[in-house]
Amino acid sequence: MAQMTMIQAITDALRTEMGKDPNVLVFGEDVGVNGGVFRATEGLQKEFGEDRVFDTPLAESGIGGLAVGLALQGFRPVPEIQFFGFVFEVFDSIAGQLARMRYRSGGRYTSPVTIRSPFGGGVHTPDMHADSLEGLMAQTPGVKVVIPSTPYDAKGLLISSIRDNDTVVFLEHMKLYRSFRQEVPEGEYTIPLGKADVKREGTDLTIVTYGAMVHESLKAAEELEKEGYSVEVIDLRTVSPLDLETIIPSVEKTGRAIVVQEAQKQAGVAANVVAEINDRAILSLEAPVLRVAAPDTVFPFPQAETVWLPNYKDVIETAKKVLTY
């Protein structure tokens, strides 16, 4: 089995699906000759031709609108939005058009579109590149929001996303693109959407998290183990819809939970997870469910970024509050 970084696994997933399904089209800014600014689409245009992998003019709304029309005509578009901070330009296409197509047309039209986009802090990007905006997408019925944390997950989840008959926003954390390698099987395999993964089992505390924070949470869990605490870490993988079938039994087992996200604290995915736990497992709780999240400011410029982003120390601190409540 090959050792791959997450970006390689993503390219591999795209190549696998393009080879299998002629209706899969990849397009966006710089995805053709250049292979994408992160090289996610490296070599695809050469392999599959300019009809199936093409550079668009520089216009995010145009990219989204193109996907709407192509999907209607039976294609399975996989557009790339160069950075998810640019999503506001294409928000109508996603939330106004793709997400509502099935209902608006009484089921006649669907939107099997996977919008890939890099996001996430810790890589010192310019303004408007790094924001975690998954909460905005998660509040959009009709859209699924997928965020992988490992190369293995990235490939299997991306293949599932492309095959899915609903619109998927597939968010790739930039810090994870090349941070580590992992064994990734060749050829096709899928990981179901809407299914969380228990990345580490434990009995004293459940940490629910996703994306880059999975790794901060795992690190925190190791540290906490040294102090005698057994911590379970659940990687949501799909932040909308939520996999309550995994979250709730875990919290019932441990009786304590925290939710860790990189995004700002207000509203958002973590708040939703806390609310669901309170709705469904309140009688199992030994302590309030707390959140680890970024402050409710705009995403800061690079010099102020490191302190602003949540890390494993924040996770340990909050975990202890709950463990010793």
Binding site: G64, G65, P77
Partner: peptide, 20 residues
């Protein structure tokens, strides 16, 4: 195609459809 409410958005959908 279903009636479009967002002004002008259908121009892009037609472009995608024409591309197809």
């Amino acid at each position: 195609f279903p009636v479009q409410i967002i002004i002008g958005a259908q121009c892009l959908h037609a472009v995608g459809s024409a591309w197809a």
